[in-house]
Simulated assay, not measured.
Amino acid sequence: MESKPRVNRYEFNDPFTGSYFYFTNDLARDLEKVLSNPTANRIFWNTGKGSFGFRCDDKNVVLRENEFCTLTALNYLEVPDNDQKIAAIAFNREFYCIRDHDHEVSCNGILFYGAQDFSVLKFPPADIVPFQKLTDLFMKEFQECDSLHGEMLVSLLKILIIRLTRIGRNQITAIQGDNQSIEIIRKYNLLVEENFRKWKQISEYSFILNISSKKLSELFRIAKLDPPLQTIHKRVILEAKRMLLFSLKSINEISDELGFEDASHFSKLFKKLTGKSPSKFRSQKN
């Protein structure tokens, strides 16, 4: 009988701080561990030749060769049995908080919280080998395990996130190279993530960004992205879908939690964006 290939699984836990980091080069054989921490952010990337499918919230996701995606603790994941070679990293905010350290890696609004939409991104050919070498460094570091082990893992994770963020920035091809505009878009997306429950108007966000609503809308149009108002609406509806699918809250409770004064306004927006009423969407979830 052919022996199974060795699976590299590496875990860092600090019981005093609650820090958690996990790396595997074979998600299929280590899925339970990768998904075990409900507060972890995750990165999946397809290192094999075929395709890998799974479900994220209400969407079917497919990762093809050399494609990756980033996931937060907010995402609900259903990952079927699959022999495809997928590498994965999981880490919680105690290990490295991407919100508190946004000034270091600038990934929020591009990769994680506040991204315009759930994205599957592809590694450019020139980045594949350097990225493989970086994952090798993660595995080598677990052979050291000295007093600097945790700090070294954090440093490697930061390098990884910065590399992925650069790839994500380059996906905004219409304004590629316009770093100032990309930064405004990134900050807007992050503000929406943080405030979509209470702020529903573009003007509330443009004020914080010190830019007119008209100029902000024009910037998104030039970048060939969803209009800013649609970005707000889509984030509201995404949260509504999560609560309809994965909670027992009533539609009125969901409406209140999402900042609507009247449940009918919520239902109208939901149907406009999804084509279904909230109650019909919930009843068809299976």
Rank of each mutant, 00 (worst) to 15 (best):
F196Q: 02
K249A: 12
K122T: 14
T39L: 13
T72R: 08
N286E: 14
K33G: 01
E67Y: 08
G114A: 07
R197N: 10
Y10T: 02
N286H: 12
I208M: 03
Y205G: 08
L35M: 09
N75H: 15
G177S: 11
I185H: 06
D256G: 05
M1P: 05
D226M: 13
R242M: 07
L216I: 10
S36V: 00
N195R: 10
I161N: 09
E78K: 05
Y188D: 14
Q143A: 00
L157F: 04
V236L: 12
E239C: 07
I110S: 13
E193T: 06
T165E: 15
L225R: 13
I222W: 10
M152D: 03
D30C: 01
N41C: 11
I159Q: 11
K285V: 02
E11C: 06
S36H: 08
K4R: 11
V192H: 01
I110E: 11
L111I: 14
E151S: 11
Y76C: 15
R186N: 12
S267M: 11
N92L: 01
G150T: 03
C56Y: 04
I110L: 14
Q84N: 07
V154Y: 09
E194A: 12
I159W: 08
Y22F: 13
G48R: 07
L164R: 08
L258G: 00
